[in-house]
Write a protein that binds this DNA or RNA. Sequence first.
DNA 1: GTGGTCTAGACCACA
DNA 2: GTGGTCTAGACCACG
Lengths: 131, 131, 131, 131
Amino acid sequence: MPAHPASLFSIATGSPEPIYRQLVEQVRRLSASGQLRPGDEMPSVREIAQALTLNPMTVSKAYGLLEMEGVLARRRGLGMVVAESAAPAGTADIVGLLRPTLERAAVEARQLELDPDTVLSLFATILKETK
Amino acid sequence: MPAHPASLFSIATGSPEPIYRQLVEQVRRLSASGQLRPGDEMPSVREIAQALTLNPMTVSKAYGLLEMEGVLARRRGLGMVVAESAAPAGTADIVGLLRPTLERAAVEARQLELDPDTVLSLFATILKETK
Amino acid sequence: MPAHPASLFSIATGSPEPIYRQLVEQVRRLSASGQLRPGDEMPSVREIAQALTLNPMTVSKAYGLLEMEGVLARRRGLGMVVAESAAPAGTADIVGLLRPTLERAAVEARQLELDPDTVLSLFATILKETK
Amino acid sequence: MPAHPASLFSIATGSPEPIYRQLVEQVRRLSASGQLRPGDEMPSVREIAQALTLNPMTVSKAYGLLEMEGVLARRRGLGMVVAESAAPAGTADIVGLLRPTLERAAVEARQLELDPDTVLSLFATILKETK
DNA sequence: GTGGTCTAGACCACA
DNA sequence: GTGGTCTAGACCACG
């Protein structure tokens, strides 16, 4: 049971990416990486909605999708918890979550006719800054 | 004066990314990387629309945005050309076009608590495959 | 929260100036002059379209451009509001919006070899009539 | 017979105003103000087109409209001349050519809720600069 | 409910 | 021939 003040999430309302999807993907990553573990209680829809000033329907939609995916489980009257089936995931699965974004970057790099080594060293720099 | 068979573009109709934006970004990259150079004539709206089986308005919207961005210039009654102001761009600028996607990948990697070296070697592999 | 009956706008369908642009410029002026203030909700695309008997896409195009300009902001699923960044504008900026038209008039007057005083008194008369 | 090196005209190809209309209005003003007088020979379509690097059809269209208006007259085999009916025009007519632009400026000023005195003094300044 | 995208087809302005 | 505008109507994504 992590200390979720609902501020586990950082959503950007101005982003082109829909809010519900930002939530879904963040939970998915937190679960896959073990930062959320099976049995952990999730904050209620209302808590998140209030903390992030979102429409509760938006949060609810994210929870619904995560339940369908098997990442979260609904415990009637008790709220959502991280599903038992959502094991912290092996490295292979975690890598699978990152792959699509890297593939997109690779395609763009190719269209820009950039040298792979240049791209890699740029990415290495960015990774350090991000960390 | 490149040999544009209007097949310079590859659009994915099933993608969540709108068609007109796919066109915009591809032209932007082709221009930045020098594959399209100032003065080059662009294929006509109708040519592209027919070649890609799109509605001309969709193509027109992309052209309009590219004109506003200063990438293309309109020659009234004659069609669009690559703008003189759209120089082939230095490496710095080209890199700037790729940066956002790499930054996004870095953020995701961090949220997945992946080791930077793992991420880099994965990316290196993907870059080779893409090439 | 102004009383927008969507009749804030007056469009001239017969004008050579495209409708969407008439809308854009009117909103720009209303914003600059403080008649629309940051946070104000704009009438919906459908409301305006119905009130002015326009196609919704025409209104949507205007809204899209105003968003790109930073005058309006989209609140997904909720409609458009006047952007926070669109401050009511200082007198200097407001004047800047009028300047191009006055400069054009000045050039024309000069080409007609009209005496500045004549032009000024004519303009003074027109200003009174317009008011 | 003024010294027309076809550079009497200044056209802005990038302007939203169509080229042929820029030509028409400039000739109209030059005629009304007496800088072009009845009987004056106009440069040939080809001369203008070459001097300004325009499509001859564009120049021809302008000449056609000016002929319809009675500003120019076609003398078969000899080119266009300023029409006899195109007297240098009284002040009243000259003023009429300027009025529409001033009216537009007045409407914009009103929408911007600018004080008439402010507008007038701004215009006075611009008139001096232009002169 | 909101705006966004796309299509189909008509018409116009410009060169 | 070029691009631009507008309409009508369908469908989608978001909240």
